[in-house]
Amino acid sequence: MKKTFKIAHRVVGGDAPCLFIAEAGVAHFGDMGMARDLVDLAAEGNSDVFKIQIFDVDTLLSAEAEEWKDRLRPRNLTLDQVFELKEFVESKGMLFMATAHDQSRLSWLEELDLPAIKVGSGELGNHWFLKKLAKLGKPMIVSTGMYAEQDVVELLEAIESTGNDELALLHCVTSYPTPAGDVNIAAMDSLARVFSGPVGYSDHTEDHLAVLGAVARGAKIVEKHITILRDIPNAQDWKVSAGPEDLAQLVDDIRKMETMIGSGVKKPAECEAGGMSWALKSVVAVRQLPAGHVLAEADITTKRPAGGIPADQMEKLLGRVTSRCFAKDEKIDLTGIE
């Protein structure tokens, strides 16, 4: 698998900025006005991607799940509506993506000509469907909620068999909300051990700590649900969503965190130059020292500020002779030492 690839104009992986996906899911509840409001929310929050979920309830769900069908049916959009939404998203400067939850929507993905294919965790083990998605020839982003490491290996084998080598994996926990003790951000490291492509995180927690923690740990893609409405019966995404009150702050914090991660090279920062003058220490006289005095350990110490003989040179002065007097706390300088 490629370590980096492009989704439209955006590089994913390597040193590229983390790709932020605003996951609207079905938070539009089938209302195009609400869908447009969600797009505005994502755009105002500086999201890179706006994403929804598309499906046909009768293809997605079996007859024994009639309650789920009744719940999801009003939250569906037509293909014309999705095209309209895609155009609106792109007019805001964002990429548009959709997760197809069943085979009836494969043709939609082709017609929409999306820049990448996002796959939900529910396709665990559903290799025949995953292969069909991979054969669309687009970069893929796959969430791995409920996966064990062997499941990841089998997923990779399935995708690789299609010749698609542009894949990113997102660590995810399929629980709404996810308890803090189950987030397991370090599982991204496990993904990276068996997979050479970009690794990221899809969040289902109630706040932003896990997202920032994932970015700090090296996530190349982050996905967070967004919503405008709260306290919706028969819905769960709003419980783990960012909204108008905090989405922009979350994305801003992600960008700050990326800046804080830095290059990884251990060296003095430019901003430390001023600190070196007052925080570092110089060698000074412990007491008044006469000329002709042989310096012993009891005669000298190190004190702030810098500017004299550095602290790491103190031991080299032992046994040398003063050529002039030094006052208590006066910096020792080489001109006064023989």
Rank of each mutant, 00 (worst) to 15 (best):
P115S: 04
G262D: 03
I332W: 07
D102Y: 00
C172I: 02
G125K: 03
G145E: 12
D237P: 13
T178L: 03
E206D: 00
T174W: 09
R105M: 07
V251D: 02
A216W: 07
R36H: 04
L79R: 11
G181D: 05
S190T: 09
F88M: 04
L209A: 14
D37N: 12
F5N: 06
K303R: 10
K256L: 15
Y176N: 03
A285Y: 14
L212W: 08
A24C: 13
G336Y: 13
C18E: 01
D31F: 01
D203L: 06
I221F: 11
H293E: 12
Q288Y: 14
T322L: 05
T259V: 12
E206A: 12
Q236L: 12
E258M: 10
T301C: 11
V240P: 10
D70F: 03
I159F: 06
Q150H: 14
I300Q: 06
T99S: 15
V211T: 15
L317P: 14
G145W: 06
I226P: 13
F326D: 03
L247A: 09
A98P: 13
Q150S: 10
M314A: 02
P177Q: 08
V142W: 00
K220L: 01
R287H: 14
A24T: 06
P310G: 01
G262P: 13
A306E: 09
V11N: 08
E149F: 07
F55Q: 07
R217P: 03
V199K: 13
V199N: 12
E67L: 05
A296D: 07
G200R: 10
L289T: 04
G292K: 12
L61F: 11
F129L: 08
I254R: 00
A100N: 08
E87T: 03
G213L: 04
A134H: 13
D165S: 10
S161H: 13
D182G: 06
I117Q: 10
K135W: 02
K331D: 02
V183H: 10
E223Y: 06
L156C: 12
G213D: 00
G213V: 05
F50R: 07
L136I: 10
V119P: 06
K303N: 04
E84S: 07
T162Y: 08
E160Q: 09
L167W: 00
M1L: 11
S107G: 08
L295Y: 03
I159C: 14
L38K: 08
L318W: 03
A100M: 02
I21S: 12
L60Y: 07
A269I: 02
P139S: 00
A63G: 13
L209G: 08
K256S: 06
M276Y: 10
A279F: 15
A116C: 10
G292E: 00
T205Y: 08
P115C: 03
A168Q: 07
P115M: 03
G120Y: 02
E245K: 15
A63S: 15
D37M: 05
A219E: 05
C18R: 08
V12Y: 11
Q249S: 11
T227I: 13
L280Y: 05
D231V: 01
D312Y: 01
G243P: 10
H225N: 09
K2P: 11
F326W: 14
G13L: 05
I141C: 10
G137F: 05
D37R: 12
V12K: 15
A248M: 07
K303H: 12
F5D: 11
D151F: 04
Q249K: 12
R217N: 11
S282C: 13
G308V: 02
K266W: 10
S282Q: 00
F29C: 09
